[in-house]
Design a protein around this nucleic acid. Sequence first.
DNA 1: ACACGGATACTA
DNA 2: AGTATCCGTGTC
Length: 196
Amino acid sequence: MNGDPLPTGTGAPLGADFFQRDPVTCARELIGCELLWKSCGGIIVETEAYSVCGDEACHTFSRPSSRAFVAGHPPGAAYVYLNYGVHWLLNFLVKGGGENGFVLIRALEPTRGIGRMQKRRGMKSGLCSGPGKLTKALGIDKSQHGRNCLGGASLLLLRPANAPRIAVGSRIGISKATHLPWRFVLCGSACLSSPL
DNA sequence: ACACGGATACTA
DNA sequence: AGTATCCGTGTC
């Protein structure tokens, strides 16, 4: 259909059960997975965990609408919101395991639909090296908020074939609960939003 | 270094 | 209504 080669070395699709654990485990294990969205996508190289349990940086801490979202949607639902009035940010709902929360997808290494992503971004490189960049590259916006796409035709998450090397650090760009080591990156990736 | 931009949740 | 805050990016 498109001219892009199939990605090599990708494993089985994730199911909803993947997100029925806790946000930190999910954020770590999403590193190395391939995110495909309407025939564009890439390898997830950077994530952050947010927990409804005592995490002041999580939207549920200060937003009733976010708490309602957690109550009203299944695990794996896309939580998409506008940040700084400019950028859509993509999270996945984690629910029904040890702790509820979200995983923020912060960066991808592009693998598929690169030409289309370049056109949406208006540039050739750095297509997905940031949470706002990757949603623009993929064409994700408010219209996807609340949709549970896991297993659907348009959104697919594939496990890595080989265990990736993962590094851990503090979350970026937040003013509260900055000490928590809940940022995960793929070691050696050139596509991070900022170095670890 | 700085401007850009809008949804959400407060105060009244 | 008005104000404060916010998980960023591109260009200055």
